[in-house]
Design a protein around this nucleic acid. Structure first.
Lengths: 195, 195
DNA sequence: TATTTTTCCTAAAGACTTTAGGCAAAGTCA
DNA sequence: TGACTTTGCCTAAAGTCTTTAGGAAAAATA
């Protein structure tokens, strides 16, 4: 009965660790309680349900990922920014597979709107400033970036590219080059920004 | 005790239906048994475990998806083939969200190798024949296509593009145009194939 | 200090998974 | 056809996870 001072935030963070260790789909209230040195029922003072816990982990991961993305994009522009942003997603999926899986959890629209999701779009928009796109091209490009980054990270994480030549790494560089070329050619001026 | 003639294949198909109705993560042996008009324990004559059931549903979905992709690509070339292939994935995710989620289930490498996964790569390669890429560009392009198709379908399904202007549909057309342009520019001849 | 709130606990009910053992239907073979 | 084996379904039961209810002690508040 020594009180441990658990909070929903702390539980989300511990849950994120647990997800990385055993997989997001195996995060249970039982396992988390054990990890925190507490009985299962005690968790229900802090979370409403296991689903609620999973949502909190998802929000935690989305936020952490947005923080990293913001850090990577700051002070960079053009292709540098594009590569830095892409690497954040790819590296996060590799370093924190459980959190990455959590970040893909389906959220209801109110929760999604209050999540760090919009920050991710904003960061993609910031990167695209270097390519001088108008609307609606910029929005399309935001979605393309999201699709490629998420799709690549997801397939890479799933092992779709492993045990096969060439290296996943090479395809990733090639993909970033291709995206840069594509976005540059979409620019109204149709010129590459200065290196 | 009227015997229903269940088989692992039939259970996978019923499981796929169930996944579309309630979501892949809520597919349980209990629910499937109820749906088949059988007691839970009876399922274990056909499947080893719930995990085994999920794997079978995943394989079912991958196969069905590959069949559709093959059908769409047959008799088409160039951009037509690219668009047709992309639409298969996008439409499948929309029509069969549970099956699409199942198709993303992580499989161990032996199972993955025996799945329809390789057929998907082959179909992407077939589409890319129209762009006359050499190696390793073709492999990179296969991966890019996989990333974009999967990423877009996944985000679209997650509602990331809904309730927002412009329409997801427009971004999809734009994306396919962009991919076509990109692949054409990667071609050694650097010329667009005839329309 | 007295009171209220919070955080932990034990207990218990309900759902899902999985194994064990039994019985009758379906398939096999004289 | 009748005996034998196999198969597919059943009931029963044990284990895990979720969730609620109610109680006791620590922490916060007045």
């Amino acid at each position: 009965m020594a009180r441990l001072g658990l909070t929903p935030q702390r539980l989300a963070a511990e849950g994120a660790e647990l997800a990385d260790e055993v997989g997001f789909d195996r995060v249970t209230a039982s396992a988390l309680a054990q990890r925190c040195g507490v009985k299962v029922a005690s968790l229900y003072a802090h979370i409403r349900s296991t689903q609620d816990l999973k949502v909190r982990i998802a929000l935690f991961a989305l936020n952490e990922l947005a923080d990293r993305a913001a850090e990577a994009v700051a002070g960079r522009a053009g292709k540098d920014a594009l590569v830095a942003l892409g690497n954040v997603y790819r590296d996060y999926a590799r370093e924190h597979p459980g959190r990455y899986a959590a970040s893909q959890l389906r959220l209801d629209s109110a929760t999604a709107a209050a999540s760090a999701g919009p920050r991710h779009s904003q960061l993609a928009r910031a990167v695209l400033r270097g390519y001088h796109l108008g609307e609606p091209e910029q929005t399309h490009a935001v979605r393309l970036l999201g699709s490629v980054f998420h799709g690549f990270a997801s397939l890479d994480l799933g092992g779709a590219f492993s045990h096969s030549v060439p290296d996943s790494e090479e395809s990733w560089s090639w993909t970033l080059d291709a995206l840069d070329a594509l976005l540059s050619s979409q620019s109204p001026s149709n010129r590459r920004p200065p290196h």
